[in-house]
Design a protein around this nucleic acid. Structure first.
Lengths: 330, 330
DNA sequence: ATGAAAGCGCTAACAA
DNA sequence: TTGTTAGCGCTTTCAT
């Protein structure tokens, strides 16, 4: 692998000069420039970014921590992050933390050791004290991590309200919310609160079923079946679209017709769901905007580590109509 | 950020000694070790991996190039890669090449500059001459990239055969294959060949519909509708499961019942599809094994860059039964 | 068992 | 406009 010094020799200039043309810095004569460029071409030269970073230049790498990209929601989010960051000259180290605290900790340490410029985290392992003392710019998606780490999220509260309104509007009287287990401090609890508020305003009640986020789809399916068969449920709000898919499955196996017998609305509204399951009503999170904002905030912090940022940034959601929440005339 | 020298001062030893305890190298007294460890704890020390790599140590980073992780298949594959690599002490830089040659080229250059230890590539942009001259270990998933780059893939030929057999077995006479556009040199063409072989052995014919891989789902849906409505199709093999989902959609909108009027089988068999769409018959690629093999080969090449590897490694597929290919009694 | 010193490939004062 | 030189933080001979 050719190094800067080789170029210098071939072009018959000093290493400094080569460095200058690479970084387009200081004043160079055209002649020198072309000589150096020629040499670079000839040796197929690539500057060693490790050495540059060691000299204080940033490595232009962002650590991205999410539960896992096999989930279409996080897949789309990570893909969006990668795309936007690429155009700004950054690359990403992908960390699938799963539900594994140890792994997340290990990654955090590693990211520090690798001198990444910043971190975007949307993992589900809370209570990682390490986040407090990472001396690095961090932005979080939809999770509380630590005092001074800004959280960007969709308007969970409004999303919950809207979901409830749509179910009521569709003619449901006996509604149920199926959500991941309640996590203290997590903004996603607001989905539940918004939902509750609206239902109560209508003097109705609702059932709450919590299913651990990391339960297998089979387990989830079983619990859903229980809920659907034991109660007179005629409307369900799932706090994510994949769970909606399971509800559709179970409803079918129980002979419940959607939307005739049961109305259903989910949350997330990924491109995947909208394209491959347009029948599903859902609350769409503005992924593109969320990512844009997170990156914007992160780059601000990178430029100026002590710049003041708010703790919470909330972006509006959008209701996506779908056959599963169609109003039923009685 | 504390550095090695700070530890040395605090522990009252030389930088060399600290380095030795970090790398567990040479002979150290217990006393010295514990002093150094204590100092490391106290200063919350993380060795700077940039500096280490610069000194010849590998950075333990692998570049991973795929079309995009928002597709559940690539999502699962990338997640699996990340998981397995993590346990071996490697991290990944994620590159979503999309269908953008320029981006893929840029990433390739970047990965070289970043001194990654190797690359796993499964992108769809062929004819990237650059792959030939990357002086780095590379393993490819299911794509021909260059002469000496090993390709790992599922048994596409057998997969195509099995799909055809299942459709025939299910009672279909007028079958159709819906696939991404034919790419020269791509092993996935074998799916088509295997399918053709079996159909012809039964003295039947089949229709072929090619839809560009990167077409939007709406466009794809439109073409599928055409196919389903113009011909007397009663059996469809989609070379990926997402396209199957679209066929289900269109069949429904045309009033075609599956499997009564139309049998359907897909390809890929991700966990996502198996869990959330168990009704879909499909040919499952052994993602876990594919990844294990790719990583195994890659690490071999990393250890010994001139070790000889075969050009092709083919792993067996598995037919996943599903309601959509159920045999219909006439 | 420990330390001194050189150097990985690059950048950035400071000189000329 | 160009070159000399001193490190960035770490590893690793070679001494002691």
């Amino acid at each position: 692998m050719a190094k800067l010094e080789d170029i210098a020799k071939l072009a018959e200039v000093s290493p400094t000069t080569v460095s200058r043309v690479i970084n387009n810095y200081g004043s160079l004569s055209e002649k020198t420039k072309s000589k150096v460029f020629a040499a670079m071409k000839e040796l197929n030269y690539q500057p060693n970014s490790l050495a540059r970073s060691l000299k204080g230049k940033s490595a232009k790498i962002i650590g991205v921590i999410f539960p896992g990209v096999s989930n279409p929601f996080f897949g789309q989010m990570v893909e969006t992050i990668e795309n936007q960051l690429f155009t700004k000259g950054y690359r990403i180290i992908l960390c699938n933390a799963g539900n594994n605290k140890e792994k997340e900790r290990a990654y955090l340490r590693m990211l520090i050791a690798n001198q990444v410029d910043g971190i975007i985290a949307g993992s589900h392992n809370l209570e990682i004290e390490e986040y407090q003392q990472v001396g690095l710019p961090i932005i979080s998606f939809d999770r509380y991590l630590s005092e001074n780490i800004p959280i960007v999220s969709s308007d969970n509260y409004q999303g919950g309200k809207t979901a409830a309104e749509i179910l009521l509007e569709s003619g449901s009287k006996n509604v149920q919310i199926i959500s991941g287990a309640n996590r203290p401090n997590s903004p996603t609890n607001k989905r539940l609160e918004g939902f509750r508020k609206t239902i109560e305003e209508h003097d109705l009640e609702f059932g709450l079923t919590e299913i651990k986020f990391d339960a297998s789809p089979n387990i989830k399916g079983m619990k859903i079946k229980e809920v659907l068969s034991n109660n007179q449920v005629d409307g369900v709000f799932c706090t994510d679209d994949l769970t909606s898919l399971l509800v559709v499955q179970q409803a079918k196996s129980l002979g419940l017709k959607i939307p005739e017998d049961l109305r259903l609305i989910g949350y997330d509204g990924t491109k995947f769901i909208q394209e491959f399951h347009p029948e599903l009503a859902t609350i769409e999170q503005p992924i593109e905007d969320i990512v844009t904002l997170m990156i914007d905030l992160l780059l601000k912090r990178i430029k100026d580590p002590k710049c003041q940022l708010k703790q919470n940034y909330v972006l509006p959601v959008k209701a996506i109509a779908g056959e599963t929440s169609r109003r039923i005339s009685k």
